[in-house]
Design a protein around this nucleic acid. Structure first.
Lengths: 357, 357
DNA sequence: ATGAAAGCGCTAACAT
DNA sequence: ATGTTAGCGCTTTCAT
């Protein structure tokens, strides 16, 4: 910066002021400084600025993985917002529980970011407490964190609506396939399962634990999970998968076993992954990139305005997209035909919930 | 840090030394400092350290988007390595040409990272020159950058092998569907197309420009591209797609038009995307996460060892996975049956090329 | 509108 | 083995 100052024939103060766009610089000086900076291809060192301002100009994200579709979309939306705000994006990912413990122990984001976004984590109370004392705003993404800033879609209502939709097609034996709960890396299992149970309860369909199975990544686990379902005395006629990625695996397992979808089994996903359409997968769409954008905007507000509501919640809408993997339940074969509900598609409940951005 | 020093009853130097794991600290002092640091939940400010060391402890990545499968996998592998090395990961993404120009104009990574990784960019000479003068090591990922550090898979050999495989199945009218070249964000089009042409030339199959079409993201563009191919007087019997994501779109378009795959048209992808298996897509697998890991390792070397070869190339292997979307060419209907080559699966050429890690 | 000078929190060189 | 001190490159008073 001293070089720039010298070249422009001004003091470092003036260079600093110019580069930060302060108004108290004469046009003449501004022009000379800009020229000098360009010629020297000078860029401000965030490190040095932050030392004095206390701001790092960086937002950190903590995510379980960087390889999942959802996280990718969130990052995409987020980076858009941050770029416009002139903020850098730092990414921390923790692959397993050891790394997770290490992260919360050390909290490397502590002084190295102006805000932390936590994506898709099912946090313990201790972890929440740790983050509460972080010293910078924390935004919880894709989860409802009571009393704390969060951005999410109404998983419960959406899962309820999805389950109702299946019910409306006559299904009463509806399985739920969730991600392995022990991973601890997602809380959507819990909320979506909750909505599923609510919708069953509404229709007085008994909740059957056998219909709820877990799978971890990889076809073997999914094949086993689906196998368990098909072996039941009273197997499901529909499967609600926690995510499209799981739904696609289920689809693959079913079809490679020669089980017709949707004729024998209907499959419903969650996400509206890019590939869902190609597979003609019925799904509940959530605006993943928009979640990232909203989270970025919220973080920006929290950073810039200390008086902003630190517990602001942003709820984004979802909508069901009926496609080809769901259909009316097949006429019962040997079993009694349950009082078949009208397969009308109900107005989604979340439209009543409203969304605030 | 002064607080920690006071609490531990030592000087800041000792705290600094302890926290950096230097050996010249007595066990006694070390214990006290560690306790104090923990109680105060103190973390080093990278900003302040970097100001004096000149190292930021951060590696930056420039990618066209964060939403694509390939970039996600690369980041996943990369973050693993960087985490182990105690380096932070900063991400820059440029969505369009304006942002791209802005990035290369300002080069925000200039003083804010110890190394820059450029993923999947088809760079102009001017951009290369700009990065050459960046002042920190640059690693080119998923592209062969002559004279500069790069990590990539042998696209040319792989595409050649893929094309040979199709030829081996009797196909002589082989289309190539590439990403829209004007995006300028990927150079795999160019190299893979090159391998495709080489394999055609080997077999004296004339290169037909009409068989090479572009598509941008979204089914409309792909439907148009496929439509153009099918309308040809002598339409292709096989399609080689630049990426699995494109291949999946092609599959979807073909199947929703009632065109049987592989009976009427074979489809070959590139990547071995997680979903390729579910769609039974024949593809050329590339180790995307491993590319990220190798790039991270290379960056680490370049940062830590100034005498390291700044033009080191790491070439990773690919392999073809025959699945259900490719099959022998259908017997000619009305047209002459070309001298059908034996559909033997040749030993992949890249095994001869060798890979160095 | 501009400059001089004091530090931000840390590390490195130099004492001890 | 530990403490002291001088900056790293910037922003920010405070003068002018």
């Amino acid at each position: 910066m001293a070089d720039v100052a010298e070249r422009a024939g001004v003091s470092v103060s003036t260079v600093s002021r110019t580069l930060r766009g302060l108004s108290t610089v004469s046009d003449d000086a501004r022009t000379r400084v800009e020229a000098a900076a360009r010629e020297l291809s000078f860029v401000i060192s965030r490190q040095a600025s932050s030392l004095v301002t206390g701001k790092t100009g960086t937002v950190a994200v903590l995510a379980p993985t960087l390889g999942s579709w959802f996280v990718g979309q969130v990052l995409r939306g987020l980076s858009e917002i941050l770029r416009d705000a002139g903020l850098d994006l730092k990414v921390y990912s923790v692959g397993d529980l050891t790394e997770r413990a290490a992260f919360f122990d050390r909290l490397p984001a502590r002084r190295n970011a102006d805000a932390l976004l936590v994506v898709s984590f099912d946090l313990t109370e201790a972890e929440f407490a740790r983050l509460d004392g972080l010293g910078v705003p924390v935004v919880y993404v894709s989860q409802h964190a009571p009393g704390r800033a969060s951005v999410y879609v109404e998983d419960i209502a959406a899962a309820r609506a999805g389950t109702r939709y299946l019910r409306g097609l006559g299904h009463r034996r509806i399985a739920f396939v969730r991600a392995a709960p022990d991973s601890g890396f997602t809380c959507s299992s819990r909320t979506r399962l909750f909505g599923y149970r609510e919708a069953l309860a509404e229709a007085a369909v008994p909740y059957d634990e056998e219909l709820v199975v877990s799978t971890s990544r990889g076809r073997r686990a999914t094949a086993e999970a689906v196998g368990r379902l098909l072996c039941l005395a009273d197997p499901p006629t529909a499967v609600f998968a926690e995510t499209d990625e799981i739904a696609m695996e289920v689809l693959w397992v079913l079809r490679s076993s020669g089980i017709d979808v949707p004729d024998r089994v209907s499959v419903l996903g969650f996400d509206d992954h890019d590939h869902a359409e190609w597979l003609d997968l019925t799904t509940i769409a959530q605006p993943a990139a928009e979640v990232g954008r909203a989270a970025g905007t919220l973080a920006r507000t929290l950073i810039g305005d200390p008086s902003a509501d630190p517990a602001r919640h942003v709820v984004l809408p979802t909508h069901l997209i009926p496609r080809g993997t769901t259909g009316p339940v097949r006429e019962a074969q040997g079993r009694e035909d349950p009082a078949r509900e009208e397969p009308t598609w109900e107005k989604p409940t979340w439209e009543e919930d409203g969304s605030s951005v």
